[in-house]
Amino acid sequence: MDPITIILGLIIAGILIVIGVHLIPVGGAPAAMAMATGVGTGTVQLATGAGLTGLVSAGYMYHFANVPISYVLLSGAVGSMLMLGITMLVGNVVYIFGVGVPPVSAKVKFDPITKYRQDIYVSPGTEGHGIPTVSYVSGIIGAFLGGVGGALTYVLLNELGISSAISAFIAIGFFLANAVLAAYNIAGTIEGFHDPKFKRLPRAIVSSLIVSGFIAIILVFATSGGVAL
């Protein structure tokens, strides 16, 4: 693959990761106490969990199955979606049967997907709890994009001629750097695409463009062998 394609591909991967992280319902510390909608952990932890699972499934497909690259990307996406889906499902089981709260969003009056009324189920003093349908769907879409982004990074780094183990290492770092940029943009909690904070997405895309672009350019320069000190 020629270097320009790889640089562009890495930038696209970075942007996919950033969009994906914005779609994942993250509740942070308040959600751990069932006081905010989303999974009760930080953005980076959730995104990393999903991204790494995607990397494992994509890596397996890339090296052991003789399939086109699009299948590799899709299998990365499926790995991420499975991981995040299970996380949100188990989270919901704990919220519903353990804590005893209904999954509800505080940001919208009616769930955009099920059209169920939301505001009357929000406990006073909280910002929703659990993972309602719209957040769940949003999270699955986010995991899909994040998984494709992570798998694309891994595949492109392999095409660049970096050994597969080091590629995985860099792909994790690349994923984390972009996930953190998205996390800074979200600043705490987000419910999914229906959250007002989702409108901040363009800023994160621009910053991801800069950071991913820089990392991609230095990686391509270093590994092309043209410059060796």
Binding site: G42, F174, F175, A177, V180
Partner: peptide, 18 residues
Amino acid sequence: IGTGVPSVGMVALGAAVA
């Protein structure tokens, strides 16, 4: 910063790997 301390620590290694 609102995202928790771990995210700051993870970016240290994440960005440094490349």
